[in-house]
Amino acid sequence: MQLDVLYFAWVRERIGVAKEQVSTTAVSVADLVKELSAREERYAVAFQDMSVVRVAVDQILVPLDAPIGGAKEVAFFPPMTGG
C-alpha cells in the first residue's frame, strides 16, 4: 500500500522531512510506527516515546492502534499547542 506520511513540529525536525511516500504492509498505525522505526535511526528517535506523539489518519485524530487500511494520509505530530 502507498501512503503519504506527514510530520509536523519536532517530529518533522527529528525525521528530517515534512512529507514522504511510504510503501507499507502495516495494518495499524502502531505497525507503521514499528516498520518505520526499524528502517532508520531517525524514525526510532522520533517515535521512541509515543505517549508524546499524536496521530491523524486522513486528517482525523485517531488512537495509536487505529487501522490504516484504505487511508491516503497518515500524520504524526506532538500534542497541539495552538491558541
Binding site: 513540529a9 519536532w10 505530530f77 506532538p78 500534542p79 497541539m80 495552538g82 491558541g83
Partner: peptide, 19 residues
C-alpha cells in the same frame, strides 16, 4: 481549539529555539 486544532508553537529566543 487548544487541544484539538493542529497548531504548534516554537519560541525563538536570542540564544536558541524551543517547541
Amino acid at each position: 481549539l487548544k487541544t484539538d486544532a493542529p497548531f504548534w508553537k516554537k519560541e525563538h529566543f536570542k540564544d536558541g529555539a524551543d517547541w
